[in-house]
Amino acid sequence: MRAFHGIARRLGQRLLASLPALFGVVVFTFLLMRVLPGDPAAFFASGPNAGPEEVEALRREMGLDQPIPVQLLHYLGDVARGNLGRSLSTGQPVVDDLRRRMPASLELTFCALALALSLALPLGILAALRPNSLTDHAVRLLCTLGVCMPTFVSGLLLIYTFYTLLGWAPDPSGRIDVFVSQPPEVTGFLLVDALLAGDAEAWLAAASQLVLPAATMALFVLAPLARMTRASMLAVLTSDFIRTADALGLSRRQVVLVYALRNALLPVITIMGIVFSTMLGANVLVEKVFSWPGVASYALDALLASDYAPVQGFVLLMAMIFVMVNLAIDVLYGVADPRVNVG
């Protein structure tokens, strides 16, 4: 009960504390978009031969003839009402576009993170149990490869190997095979929706599409997670309470998994939050390579088209996710470490 109160209070404080940062992000991206070269009115005028009057009219319609502070005020008012504007390239409200595409990005990121953790934790533990052994060096090599290879290279390599050469993976085009009927949309997460609909075929189709991009992302973030696990395990394994556990005859299994690992996970939890946020942003290349209909590729397309609203919406969304992830990590940390709520 006491712990719960502590967590709730901290959550409230953190949410309040994040409001100025979010406001800053909104203003900053707005200004940034305005100073970037490119004239959306000229870009979206009906054709290359549109006359200056037509562009001018369009500009007035978009409100771009107003002074920047006025534009900013309008924009802030809209954001406060939950209106992020309309995308000029898709013609849809940005909120709708993001809502439709967000599950794709989240599903990919979650799966990639789960995959990365399920690899990184055992590898990190193994490496820490036998430092400087062959296992340790092998893990180090794998991590180095994952980090030094850009995701579009490793993604392409994976596609080449598993799709082109071996033919194990389906073609890298979107979230689900076009010939498989999509499960009815409930959450937007195809794996979940397929499960809810009890559609095994759709689930398999979605999962097989997901494997390669998720593996690409996972490889990219394997290094920080595995290295952190290793370092933190190494430190914990030499601590006094591990020696106590050994001195009192606890089994190796219990010493490593219960005493060492649970303590070693604390810093890994922190890193996990950072990794997750990085992944959402860094998704863009993977989404491009695998034609994944996520928010990152959407924002990139909009940016290239000088389409302000989606980019601003995307940045705001990322900032909000960052805040939420940090909150979640905070809660998780509070649960994992009883010392946090004291004082």
Partner: peptide, 22 residues
């Protein structure tokens, strides 16, 4: 392992660090 704790035990300096904090 069967001896430690059951037949011979040890206690340490700095008791707070010698216990698992979590």
């Amino acid at each position: 392992q069967p001896l430690r704790g059951a037949a011979m035990s040890m206690i340490f300096q700095n008791p707070r660090a010698a216990l698992n904090p979590i």
